Computed example of a mutant assay.
Amino acid sequence: MQNKIIVSILTFFILVDTILIYLALTISPIKLKRNVFTFQYGQVIPTDVSEYVNANQSVLENVKLDLSHVSKEVGTYQASITYFNETQYFEIVVEDTIKPKFQLKKVEWHVQLGETLQAEDLIENVEDHSLTKVYFYDEKSGKKSETKSFEIEGTQIERIIVEDQHGNQSSSLRVKVVVEKNAIAPTIKGIENLEIHVGESVDLYDGVYATDDIEGDITSRLIVDGHVDNQVPGIYEIMYTVSDKDGNTTQVVRTITVIEVEDDN
């Protein structure tokens, strides 16, 4: 009877040892915390193996982390850990789900009738990790535009949004735009008083140009009133006139003097 008890005990310990050896051979001492790790775009991706693996410190010191295929750009990438001859693979996902934030430079803008505004000129302090664009936004139609021309006199409310390269759209901010009739007259430049000799020709348009603060170059609208007789000595006044589309007019008078050539004899 005693021998049977001894044999039973020995058999039990042998079985336990066998199970422990099996577990030691089949169960890895390292375990991934999860199969997919997600990070926001712009966030630093950890390079410490303990961020990805559950294991004791002595094991962690022998685990090799491979992030060579992982990019900081938005996407899904394969990474791995290796402990001696065992490699386990997992995914790192870089995503951008954060909406941009921004501030308006001011809540009210005064523009001239016909003036065009760039949406990006109305804002400041954009907070986002990716490239962004700024739009005027129509909430009813969903239409977005980077610029807007104001052709109707009066006060109107516009909405401004910022959208990043991954499609995240900020909350819209309201800005008041006061459109006023253009009262700034065009500018005529390049006009100087001249002296010429009898018989010398003069081009009344040479070097003269006109610009408008809204329309730009309007030289083609210049009207020249007056005449220079280069055969008759005297003082001639030439009137230059130009108007913008809002009826603002500028006039400049130019004096051209025709001088008789002196005879040295």
Rank of each mutant, 00 (worst) to 15 (best):
T257Q: 13
T187E: 11
T249R: 11
L15I: 15
I223V: 11
V198R: 03
G234W: 07
L32E: 04
K72D: 15
N193F: 04
I21E: 11
V228Q: 03
I184C: 02
F150A: 01
D212K: 01
E163K: 12
V242A: 01
I19M: 08
E163I: 13
D229N: 12
N125M: 05
D17R: 10
V74C: 10
E127Y: 06
I92N: 00
Q43V: 07
L15E: 02
N265A: 14
Q112W: 14
V258I: 10
N248L: 08
E192S: 13
K33H: 02
A24F: 14
I214W: 00
T47D: 11
Q40Y: 10
T241E: 12
A55W: 02
E237Y: 12
H129T: 15
H227V: 11
K189L: 09
K133S: 14
I184N: 08
E146S: 15
E120H: 11
V253I: 13
S50A: 14
Q88C: 09
V70R: 00
Q156N: 09
L194K: 13
E262Q: 07
M1P: 09
Q165P: 00
L204F: 07
V261Q: 05
K99Y: 09
T147Y: 06
H227Q: 11
E127F: 04
E200T: 03
S71W: 08
D225H: 05
N35I: 12
V63N: 12
I19C: 13
N85F: 08
K245W: 02
T11V: 10
R254G: 07
S58R: 15
I152W: 01
E91T: 12
T87I: 05
T11F: 10
I161W: 02
I9L: 15
N54V: 12
I235W: 03
I9A: 12
Q251W: 04
A210P: 02
Q156W: 02
H110Q: 15
D203W: 00
K176C: 05
N125P: 01
N62E: 14
V224R: 04
V63C: 09
K31P: 11
T257P: 10
N54G: 13
L204S: 00
F12Y: 08
S170Y: 04
Q165G: 02
K64F: 10
V232E: 00
T18C: 12
E95V: 12
S243H: 02
F84A: 15
K245F: 04
T257F: 09
I5M: 01
K176P: 02
I123L: 00
S58G: 00
Q169C: 08
V202D: 02
L104E: 06
S28E: 14
H110I: 14
G199V: 02
